[in-house]
Design a protein around this nucleic acid. Structure first.
Lengths: 163, 163
DNA sequence: CTCGATGCAAATGCTTTGCAGAAAA
DNA sequence: TTTTCTGCAAAGCATTTGCATCGAG
């Protein structure tokens, strides 16, 4: 498959205010569940919160090890599972067999356009599609919980390269 | 995850005419690529062509072994890869880690509504969503190749059971 | 005869888990 | 202290692959 990098359009990480919200939410969840704040978890979550895009465990591990080379990959897996469980991270699958993680911001939802050549990922939001989905669910008497919607194609730059 | 069965609404297998078309298409592809028609392949493709729904390798293997218990699972994997390559089968992923296969009919495209409780899969087609997807791709300068669109929720029957 | 196909078992790649030692609370 | 967490290696799983043998053409 083509998802080798996670270059983004509009790639900007969250600001300090949002970062604090994320840490607060995490802290509340951990307190509530008797979980402990360890140096490894702090490194992993901080790296993730300051990151941009849709990162694989491997990519996260590399970044994490720049700060603490001793951290094992099982810890990264476990910490991202934790973030997923408390609703701070979305786990995405773009068809290449690896899980990718992205920050789940409150009141924000988007889907993805993925370039099969260079792996560029563009986020999109479309209220009309969301509305049509709700309509479809209603028509078939389903209570919608979540959805996946990915468009795969070739981006303009990659198309250009081939000519 | 909840995708344990592949019960369908409107579950009807293809008629003899379509079955013949599928076999013809396969035959042409195999000739063109110097592939051989073996008894195992004939069993696997026939089972698949007469099937309904979204079958996993495991489910297909069980059906195949009713006809020929000696067929190995690698053969089923390899044969479904062949069907996928010649455009006769779609490979689907509904989030439970197994690949599922369904017959790819000409000029027909649909997406899926999946019940997280009972695994029921309902197919839907929505031209307006398709149109909006094309529009989005155009807007971001992508040439669309394919997409995935799955709605996960709880079906009416399962919702009823809980009350 | 040739070369593709099969069946088995081993290998792969991602992810999860068991466990003994480390470290939060 | 007690209980959770970590790091490592081993285990799990779905899928793929190497190889000797089989069989289609």
């Amino acid at each position: 498959m083509g998802v080798t990098s996670t270059v983004e359009e509009n790639a900007e990480s969250v600001d300090e205010e949002v970062l604090e919200e994320l840490n607060e939410k995490l802290s509340v969840y951990m307190d509530k569940n008797g979980l402990r704040s360890t140096s490894q978890r702090r490194v992993v979550t901080d790296v993730f919160f300051r990151s941009t895009g849709h990162l694989s465990i491997e990519e996260l591990l590399a970044m994490v090890r720049e700060r603490d080379p001793k951290i094992g990959y099982a810890t990264v897996y476990r910490t991202l599972k934790l973030l997923k469980d408390c609703g701070i991270a979305y786990e995405r699958h773009f068809g290449d067999g690896v899980s990718r993680y992205e920050i789940a911001l409150e009141d924000e939802h988007h889907d993805h356009l993925i370039c099969l050549e260079c792996g560029k990922i563009v986020e999109f939001e479309n209220d009309e599609i969301e509305r049509l989905q709700d309509e479809l669910a209603k028509k078939h008497d389903f209570t919608l919980k979540r959805h996946t919607h990915e468009l795969y194609g070739v981006c303009g730059r990659c198309r250009g390269k081939k000519n």
